[in-house]
Design a protein around this nucleic acid. Sequence first.
DNA 1: AAGTCGGGGCT
DNA 2: AGCCCAGACTT
Length: 210
Amino acid sequence: MFDPQHDFVDPLLDWHERNGRHDLPWREPDRTPFEVLLAEILLQRTTAEAVAGAYRPFAARYPTPETVAAAPTEEIEALVAPLGLVKRAAYLRRCAQQILARPSGDVPREYPELVGLHGVGEYTARSVLIHVTGLGIAAVDTNVRRLLSRFFDVTPDRDRIAVLADALAPPTRSADFQHAMLDFAAEVCTAGSPACSSCPLRGPCASAEE
DNA sequence: AAGTCGGGGCT
DNA sequence: AGCCCAGACTT
């Protein structure tokens, strides 16, 4: 009998412990909520590998919303430019200003306030909650959508995948699970030619092959 | 609902 | 040449 927990979540977490990208700088445990948010915005439609090479200087120059709001937009643009989607520089600046306008002056800890920030959509808001508050939910990006729709052999409908992902997310290990899905999708269950022959998972997708 | 942003890597 | 990438905003 197929069991999502036993056949998907557990082996995926196990794979991640040994093969995950544990060296990504924004995954370091002592990152501030703003540093987490900064990373999430830089990662939008941008490979983790590309962001890995630009994140440390970025976080060093802009460690707080105050430093971003005080910087000229052109200066931020110059740092974002190598990653593409330069509009994110303006998004980031407006986002920092919004954060400073809050009573706390800090990154919101609730979903409605997070999605209200410029440049922060559903995925980014959820990811911030996962990493900052440890909330037991999932964030669906192109990787997660591809992985789950394939493994469970269901249509890649956004809302449906989101419900499935939330149901799978371990309440106390949502960050590990999120990283596991992202890393596994990027390295094994890839978009182009997935490494099914060396895949450690066995699920509905296996019987769906050929 | 469709269009736009985007450089870099991979096929 | 074309596809893809921790999406979100604008029209």
